[in-house]
Amino acid sequence: MSVIFFLIPLSIVFAVAFLFAFIWSVRSGQYEDTTTPSMRLLLDEKIAAKPDSKPDNSPNPKLK
């Protein structure tokens, strides 16, 4: 049963590693915004890649 004296410190080492991972994730701002990533997930890259539906027969509607 004395293996437990080895296992407990080992488990602590693992746990501390996870704690530091958590602290890093908070520091890097991953908990700042929990709303936008869920929306971003729905945004399909394909929409952006799609050729625009502009029929373009208008006489040069240049903006600037």
């Binding site: 799609k50 050729p51 625009d52 502009k54 029929p55 208008s58 509607p61 903006l63």
Partner: peptide
């Protein structure tokens, strides 16, 4: 109006054109 779509003002139309020209019609 432009391409069967109507716009309430010149500002909205300008944005629409800017977006479609740059492939952001999505």
């Amino acid at each position: 109006s432009r391409a069967d779509k109507s716009f309430c003002c010149a500002g909205c139309l300008a944005v629409f054109e800017l977006l479609t020209e740059n492939g952001l019609a999505g």
